[in-house]
Design a protein around this nucleic acid. Structure first.
Lengths: 235, 235
DNA sequence: CCTTGCGTACTTGGATCCAAGTCGGGAGCA
DNA sequence: TGCTCCCGACTTGGATCCAAGTACGCAAGG
């Protein structure tokens, strides 16, 4: 569980290992550090100009997240993607996100100012996302995708659930970066987003979850071909 | 995510902080260490006769699990239970466990030797559980309850999902220990277990998940009264 | 040429050391 | 008596030190 911003872990203090953890996590998730890459405590300590102590904590935390494997006396290896792990994380994400969206669809009421605020926020996100599709800016698209899902999850209000989904996302993101380069599914995803919102506004719980699951599963078949294509990153 | 046994984290090696983590985690979950109790690195280090280093790692990991709050320069406090956290963890558990059981119900086929083996295992567990009910041995009952759910989860085969549920369980268990002392719901739970198994064997996915959710929600109303009754352990 | 074995360089695990921050109690004063 | 302030004991965060284990290269021997 990691998942929450590092600063919150040790009450209210910005700790050294927190910034290192965040940075290394970003590098791994964004494939800046490719799966299989070896990294070493000394190396990172020198880069951040700190001692090995906070680096070790960051490594340890990444190991808990399954993003890094620490091999005693040999170094640490950025975890390979595993088809099994991706499938597992995907299943967990689908289950939890469906639960959260169902909850939102049930509670949706446009007389409620909170709902109207959320609606405005989401429509702004969709507009940004449409722009990103036109501009073929995949990175921006992914950011907005995260914002779209995140907005509803926050509204559902289960912080633990959000944390777990964030953890799953860390693993799925690495695959999605590859998918972006191979497939051009952004326009289709945007349509799904709009359809989900539409069902949600009708308080149609079943349609909301069905569409959400279909949206999340959209890339599933495609993903299998990626497993085969990018063998260097897997297992 | 805790969840996995400590030994697996650092490949194949039994590390010092792993055993400390496991032990402290058990003490917290079993309410041996009550919520709010302050513990200190030196104290634990002396008890286990090691230096502060491995103890710090264990503390850190418990903090990630939300079981311990480390307050800089002041010590570490065993996390209070929070009604919100319990509700959140419960929602996550329900969602994931329903997914897993639905999967098992879908795949169930008594021509398959694996299914028959699982059936035998589960029926043995149910027998043990019935004995525990008769003997009013609540602790044994809880162990078998865990075994019942765990058997199906393992059959579903999603290790990531199992890990997340384990993490949620850590928080729920503390409440359940209190519930055991207050309510006597064991016989009712056993009936639910049998009903779930029956639906599952008919490949009735909907009935399986309905009954599972009902089973998990059984204590929900009761739980709220506990929140009020045991104020010392909350928030 | 290939295999075997040893030695060195490098890595992490754990212990100790130092710095900085928090808390509580007692002295001093009104 | 009661309030304030200061100092010391104790805590964790981070740095450094030492020990143990791995890997790789090179030399020696078949």
């Amino acid at each position: 569980m990691t998942r929450m911003k590092a600063e919150e872990l040790i009450a209210g203090r910005q700790t050294l290992d927190g910034v290192i953890y965040d940075e290394l996590r970003t590098r791994i998730i964004s494939l800046d550090y490719l799966p299989g890459k070896m990294i070493f405590e000394n190396e990172i300590a020198a880069e951040f100009d700190v001692s090995r102590t906070p680096v070790r904590r960051a490594f340890f935390r990444l190991a808990i997240d399954d993003l890094l494997q620490v091999l005693p006396q040999r170094g640490a290896r950025v975890s390979f993607l595993s088809a099994a792990k991706v499938r597992e994380a995907q299943a967990v994400r689908e289950s939890l996100e469906a639960t959260a969206f169902a909850d939102v669809a049930r509670r949706w009421d446009e007389a409620d100012p909170a709902c109207r605020a959320l609606l405005a926020e989401v429509e702004a996100i969709l507009a940004d996302q449409a722009a990103a599709v036109d501009a073929q800016d995949y990175l921006a698209f992914m950011r907005h995708d995260e914002a779209f899902h995140g907005a509803f999850l926050r509204f559902a209000g289960n912080r633990t659930l959000i944390a777990v989904i964030g953890e799953m996302r860390a693993h799925l993101n690495r695959v999605r970066f590859v998918e972006l380069q191979e497939a051009h599914h952004d326009a289709a995803a945007l349509v799904w987003h709009r359809d989900i919102l539409e069902a949600l506004r009708r308080n149609d719980v079943a349609a909301t979850t069905d569409r959400l699951i279909a949206h999340l599963k959209m890339l599933e078949a495609f993903r299998e071909t990626i497993f085969a294509k990018r063998r260097d990153m897997f297992l």
